[in-house]
């Protein structure tokens, strides 16, 4: 996976879907990418914790049935970060496209 793309995926997903919990994020990514992207727990949670530490996400806990669940939501700073990261990612894809297939034009 492109370096830094996991954070972008998480932020973008939370911006679109509102609050989500860890397992839900892994399943959503798997479904959207038709099983192409699988986020492991060992990669997901450290990234969620990092984004929380950076003030991009906030956390709330709720009782669901007989267990507690942590929900992540995107903050105002996180929303601004998504815009920057998406632009960065799009530029990266464009450059890669130019490098690898100079004859194909992206829309």
């Amino acid at each position: 996976m492109y370096k830094g793309s996991l954070a972008t995926i998480i932020l973008k997903l939370l911006e679109e879907k509102g609050r989500m919990y860890g397992y839900q994020i892994t399943q959503e990514v798997k479904a959207i990418s038709a099983g192409e992207f699988v986020i492991t727990e060992g990669a997901l949670y450290p990234m969620l914790h990092k984004l929380e530490a950076d003030g991009m996400l906030t956390v709330e806990t709720e009782m669901i049935g007989n267990r507690m669940r942590k929900y992540y939501s995107i903050t105002h700073d996180g929303k601004k970060e998504v815009v920057d990261r998406m632009a960065e990612l799009e530029a990266f894809i464009r450059h890669m496209q130019t490098l690898l297939n100079p004859n194909i034009e992206l829309a």
Partner: peptide, 20 residues
């Protein structure tokens, strides 16, 4: 293990969060 990775990242997060 995932247990260790998550524990370490959580500890790091707290220090980073409050330092920020």
């Amino acid at each position: 293990s995932v247990f260790e990775e998550i524990k370490k990242s959580k500890e790091k997060e707290l220090i980073q969060k409050y330092a920020r």
